[in-house]
Simulated scan of single mutants.
Amino acid sequence: MTVTTAQRITFEEYLSYEDGTDKRYEFNDGELVVITPATVFHNDLMMFFAFFLQSETNNSHHPYCVRVNSTEIFNGKRTRRPDVLVMTLTQKKGLGNQPDILHEPCLLVIEIVSPTCRSVDTVEKRQEYAEFGIPEYWIVDFLLGTFSVLSLVNGTYIEKVYREGDRIASDIFPSISLSMNQVMASI
């Protein structure tokens, strides 16, 4: 849901925006977009991926940082707060004590498809993340039982869809062993 303010706000105003509620927003070219709270199931999936990827990062000694629904990415017009995001440690250090917003592509984003936001998660964000240059985008659709890994090639995502016991392949995490069955069994 987009919240229309009396005046369009700037990105700098967004960074310190406070309306006295617990609502979370994304910035969309001067307007605020309310972020719907996640379901328990959605939160469980986010935490599974965060723990799984953090374990993989630690075991493989990747210089990565895993974030759950906290770091935003800003493409110059709008922000997005992916369910799970993987950035480099250099990117994390570069944030310092600034707002937790990346202005350059992270390595990987994961979106868990919400039934009420299906087209946002699978169409809008796909286009935005590709334009922003995010190398890998995972779409987890528990209603369809699919796990898609999208790899950016020449500005366009090439999608590979996995089901049930299929082991996914990731360029960012080449040694992982993960299937949709494992994901579903974990929650």
Rank of each mutant, 00 (worst) to 15 (best):
1 M>S: 14
2 T>G: 05
2 T>L: 10
3 V>T: 11
6 A>T: 15
8 R>V: 08
8 R>F: 09
9 I>C: 08
10 T>K: 03
14 Y>Q: 01
14 Y>C: 01
14 Y>I: 00
16 S>N: 08
16 S>Y: 07
17 Y>M: 04
19 D>F: 00
26 E>R: 01
26 E>L: 03
26 E>A: 04
27 F>W: 09
27 F>I: 07
27 F>H: 10
28 N>D: 14
29 D>E: 13
31 E>I: 10
31 E>R: 14
32 L>M: 10
34 V>Q: 11
39 T>Y: 04
39 T>L: 06
39 T>H: 07
40 V>H: 05
42 H>P: 01
43 N>R: 00
43 N>Q: 07
44 D>H: 11
45 L>N: 09
46 M>Q: 15
48 F>G: 03
48 F>L: 00
50 A>Q: 02
52 F>W: 08
53 L>G: 04
54 Q>W: 13
54 Q>N: 14
55 S>G: 11
56 E>R: 13
56 E>Y: 10
58 N>K: 09
58 N>Q: 08
59 N>D: 08
60 S>M: 13
61 H>A: 08
62 H>A: 12
62 H>D: 03
63 P>V: 01
63 P>H: 00
66 V>S: 01
67 R>Y: 11
68 V>N: 09
71 T>E: 04
72 E>H: 06
74 F>S: 10
76 G>I: 08
77 K>Q: 09
77 K>E: 05
81 R>T: 05
82 P>K: 02
85 L>M: 01
88 T>C: 04
91 Q>C: 02
92 K>A: 12
96 G>N: 13
97 N>G: 07
98 Q>W: 06
102 L>T: 02
104 E>W: 12
105 P>A: 07
105 P>Q: 06
107 L>T: 12
108 L>H: 09
111 E>N: 15
112 I>M: 06
119 S>H: 14
120 V>A: 12
127 Q>M: 12
129 Y>P: 12
131 E>D: 15
131 E>A: 05
131 E>M: 07
131 E>V: 01
132 F>D: 09
132 F>Q: 05
133 G>H: 14
133 G>W: 14
133 G>Y: 13
135 P>G: 02
138 W>G: 02
138 W>N: 08
140 V>S: 10
141 D>K: 03
142 F>P: 14
145 G>C: 03
145 G>W: 02
148 S>Y: 02
150 L>H: 07
152 L>G: 12
152 L>A: 12
159 E>N: 05
161 V>E: 00
165 G>L: 13
165 G>F: 12
167 R>Y: 06
167 R>N: 08
168 I>F: 06
169 A>L: 07
172 I>S: 10
174 P>G: 06
176 I>C: 03
177 S>V: 13
180 M>V: 13
181 N>V: 09
181 N>K: 10
182 Q>I: 05
182 Q>C: 11
184 M>K: 12
184 M>H: 10
185 A>W: 00
186 S>F: 04
